[in-house]
C-alpha cells in the first residue's frame, strides 16, 4: 500500500463527522447506522485503492489551511477590483489571454494553483498542462500580478508526491 494508515483513519473520522452533522440526532440507532456506513465506505474505498495523496491530501492539511487564509484575502481584494471595473464608465477592462509558465512540480499543487486562479475573480484558468496554464485575465494588472508569482509561491507543495 502506498498510503499510510493515517489516511484511512482521517477519512473515517471525516465521514463519520459528516454523518453526525447531516443527521443531527445522537440516539444509539442513528450513531450505530452511521458507524456501520462509515466502515463500509472506508472498506470499499480501500478495496478500490482510490485513497492516495492526490485524491485525499491528508498530509498537508495545515499547509492547506494557511493557503486558504491567503486565498480568502486574495478573493476579497480581487472582488473589490472587479466591482470597481463594473461600475466604472467607459472602457473599463483590458482582457488578456496568455500562457503562464508553471514552476510547481507536482500535479496536486498545479491543480490547486489553477483552481485558485479561477476562484479569484478577474482571472480564469482555461487550460492546464504540465508546463503552462492558460489564463484569461480581465485586466493587465491582474495578469501582471499573476506574473509576479505571488500566488504561485503561496501554493503548498510536497515534493514527496512525485
Amino acid at each position: 500500500m502506498k498510503y499510510p494508515v493515517k489516511h484511512i483513519i482521517s477519512l473515517g473520522v471525516l465521514l463519520f463527522a459528516l454523518w453526525l452533522g447531516l443527521s443531527g440526532q445522537l440516539n444509539a440507532l442513528m450513531v450505530s447506522l452511521g458507524l456501520a456506513s462509515t466502515i463500509v465506505i472506508v472498506a470499499i474505498t480501500h478495496r478500490m485503492d482510490t485513497i492516495d495523496n492526490e485524491t485525499y491530501p491528508a498530509h498537508m492539511n495545515l499547509l492547506l489551511l494557511r493557503f486558504w487564509l491567503f486565498l480568502a484575502r486574495e478573493v476579497i481584494v480581487a472582488n473589490i477590483d472587479v466591482i470597481k471595473r463594473i461600475f466604472r464608465p467607459g472602457k473599463n477592462i483590458s482582457p488578456q489571454l496568455f500562457e503562464l509558465p508553471l514552476t510547481l512540480k507536482t500535479d496536486l499543487s498545479r491543480v490547486i494553483y489553477a483552481n485558485a486562479i479561477t476562484m479569484t475573480p478577474g482571472t480564469v484558468s482555461t487550460n492546464l498542462d504540465k508546463k503552462t496554464v492558460t489564463v484569461h485575465a480581465l485586466s493587465i494588472e491582474a495578469a501582471q500580478d499573476l506574473y509576479s508569482g505571488r500566488m504561485a509561491n503561496a501554493v503548498p507543495e510536497d515534493y514527496e508526491d512525485e
Binding site: 472587479v82 463594473i86 479569484t120 475573480p121 478577474g122 480564469v124
Partner: peptide, 15 residues
C-alpha cells in the same frame, strides 16, 4: 463578451 462575463459571475459565486 463571454470570457469577461465569467469574472462577473465569479463575484456572485465567491464573495
Amino acid at each position: 463578451d463571454f470570457y469577461s462575463r465569467l469574472h462577473a459571475v465569479g463575484i456572485t459565486d465567491t464573495l
